[in-house]
Nucleic acid binder design. Structure first.
Lengths: 131, 131
DNA sequence: CGATTAGATGAAAATGATTATCAGTACCGT
DNA sequence: ACGGTACTGATAATCATTTTCATCTAATCG
């Protein structure tokens, strides 16, 4: 390999500051603010390329937001929690870790021949205000 | 009300033919083929408007495909199954209904004050070929 | 009846996220 | 230095979706 990506480390640092999934725009906004890159923040193109490559390599996990954005998070981020979205107004309620889900994932990991099995679990509903 | 939507019924019929989630383009393709609308198939705009309204009303459920399309299905469609995606090549393995997931969703439905709680559960991993 | 009007529709433009293209540049081994 | 390879940024292209707007349709009122 001739050249190593310049911003991998910075992107991972941003992601490691939070256990939430982040969009490419959020990542850029954070890099802009934190001035953590000597030569200035990367372009949006580079961030897209970086997170895409990293998620192919298994370094990042990705989910789709209800709005259609792709969100990224470092694999193996320990604290896991779920979200209950209101389908009408988009309000979010946090749901704590559920042991049964982890058990199911573990079972599937054993039964299937896939490696590095991870999961997303999303809940939707209609919040009291929108009923 | 002065005028009622002309294509609601046709869209629901298409969705009821399958338990899978369908995209707007798929719905249009099916309507095109089946010639079930007397005055010809609706425009893509109308399908987008129809499924958006119906999902706001709680008639349809929606998920995001890994490719970023929004997919729709009639609420209460009984057979549910999950997918295990390969993060590298995109290959899909079907996972049968898992009772524990339904139980967890039911528990959350009871604990929260949200109505019409639904869920998506997606699994990712790396398939044997890509390892 | 005929006028009015709210809602539905289709075509096309606008939007927004993501990807592809391409020219320029930095780095590595020779 | 040189050639080659991979990274970068700017821009254009793509794709799904939403918005706009002019038109149409059917129910209601005078």
């Amino acid at each position: 390999m001739v050249n190593t990506p310049k911003y991998d480390e910075a992107v991972l640092q941003v992601l490691d500051r939070s256990s939430r999934f982040r969009s490419c725009r959020e990542i850029l906004r954070d890099l802009d603010r934190s001035h953590s890159c000597a030569t200035g923040p990367p372009s949006l193109s580079t961030i897209y390329r970086t997170v895409h490559r990293m998620s192919q390599e298994g370094v990042l996990d990705t989910i789709q937001s209800p709005e259609g954005e792709r969100l990224y998070r470092r694999c193996g981020t320990p604290v896991r929690h779920y979200h209950l979205f209101c389908r009408v107004c988009g309000e979010v309620e946090e749901i704590a870790q559920v042991a049964e889900i982890a058990a199911v994932v573990e079972k599937i990991r054993c039964l299937s021949d896939f490696a590095q099995v991870d999961h997303t679990f999303e809940l939707t509903g209609v919040c009291p205000r929108c009923l």
